[in-house]
Design a protein around this nucleic acid. Structure first.
Lengths: 261, 261
DNA sequence: ATAGCTATTGCGCGAAACGCGCAATAGTGC
DNA sequence: GCACTATTGCGCGTTTCGCGCAATAGCTAT
């Protein structure tokens, strides 16, 4: 692959990221190449998700947006949205709720954006992102060290902040769940935090779309406590949900409309 | 303004926001109207910044992105970037720095995204956003209550977290600054937080682009402490900067390349 | 209720942008 | 040095876009 082409593409990316918006003609003039070439560059940069094409040009797309767009095309997106709708419906006026980090809790936050007289506390950047402009919702962040993978905050600062608060409800996400081991996460710092979060709330919900049921991708566990509810979508295998119910865990299966079955 | 038109536009927005990407033909079929009408809708939604048009359709654009795009087209963007470049250059390896909330400190964060062995602590969502995928930077958030206007965290949680930390440098933003009163903010909660932040760092920088110099839009003040440096851009009125220098405040004027003059 | 006014809609047209195939060319690697 | 691959420019047909115009639908005030 010739050098000038890559350099130009990098430059296009830089230009788009600083000015936010660029046009094909502008770029073709700037680099002294044909519009066709620019178009091809844009097509390639778009395919790798580094840029969004517009009519006659391209616009910058930040990492957050990029991830968000990719996620929306995933099939699990519909499931997460349904779970989010259901979860949001559980929350009454003037409550204080805690939202874990993750895209599923982000879906809950999305449904809460229009609500009023609500206090939402979170450890996740996704949630903050969704509620950044929700003017009628009081949004609080626990703080801590940002964990890139989950876009969530962990660490002593997070735990210390938690010690001072209690919640009406907490909505937890998970990398995986099994009836036997409960919530599975990549490291014990995560599971410890989730257990701590659960201990501070009256109602505990574990939100996981069907694909995560019965999965144990990692080996740090947090078992289900008494009264915890497992919320999943209609794609869930009945045998899987039965495993949980057999152990006395309440399982709520949400259909596409966000209603419990 | 007829109702159906507005309803349809709201629906278009919802569809775009949930699926992330929609096409003109798809929308025209869905609503049973001509492509022209859809195009007009998209044009209007784009003009209000609620949507981004693509070739043959439209894509969702979240609030964050929207604000970011608007900001990038502002003239002050160049100044902020220059200040950001300079500020980033002051930070050495393995340092711990504190970044205030605001777009100017966001510009600093943007320049730090590629750095390594750095610890960035912040009270601002903008900064978090910029560094959300900076894999080599340790990012921490102080937490607190989200203040929509500045997209920053304030309150007792923020202050409590600060008590436990110290920093090599802190970079503060401001709604306005005057030589006489120092930093001006909308409320005293903000100024108190900034003073607290300043007290925890060895080096204090106040970053304000030229238009904010001599401005006092609000009446909560935080005077300059000893050793604080004022950093502004080359559009600054020499008379203004002289006011600060007369009071013994070091003023750094940064040109477009991010170098001090 | 009705008349008047404004916003909206559909349609047709010219202009702009896009994608694709082809041949020439410039870099790259052996 | 030579073969090979990626890249580029150009021309083509296709799609999309924007705008003006006339008809229509909805809102408002009397």
């Amino acid at each position: 692959m010739p050098r000038p082409a890559r350099d130009r593409r990098a430059d296009i990316l830089r230009l788009a990221n600083t000015s936010g918006l660029t046009s094909v003609t502008e770029l073709s003039r700037a680099f002294g190449v044909t519009a066709s070439t620019i178009r091809r560059d844009l097509a390639q940069l778009e395919s790798t998700g580094q840029l969004a094409r517009t009519y006659g040009g391209a616009m910058a797309v930040d990492a957050q947006q990029e991830a968000s767009l990719r996620q929306r095309s995933t099939e699990a997106f519909a499931a997460k949205r349904a779970i989010g709708v259901w979860a949001a419906a559980q929350i009454g006026a003037r409550e204080t709720v805690l939202l874990d980090a993750g895209t599923t809790t982000g879906a809950v936050a999305r449904e809460l954006a229009g609500r009023r007289e609500l206090r939402v506390v979170t450890t996740g950047l996704t949630v903050l992102h969704e509620l950044a402009n929700a003017s009628e919702v009081r949004v609080e962040c626990l703080g801590g060290t940002l964990r890139q993978l989950s876009q969530g905050f962990v660490g002593p600062l997070t735990e210390a902040a938690l010690e001072r608060m209690t919640f009406d409800r907490v909505f937890l996400g998970a990398d995986g769940v099994t009836a036997e081991h409960g919530i599975c996460e990549a490291d014990s710092q995560q599971t410890r935090l989730k257990e701590l979060m659960a201990s501070r709330a009256d109602q505990v919900y574990v939100l996981v779309h069907a694909a995560k049921l019965g999965q144990r991708p990692f080996h740090a566990h947090a078992p289900f406590g008494p009264g915890w509810k497992l919320v999943t979508d209609a794609d869930a295998d009945p045998a899987s949900t039965a495993d949980f119910r057999d152990r006395g865990i309440e399982v709520i299966v949400v259909n596409t409309n966000g209603h419990a079955q």
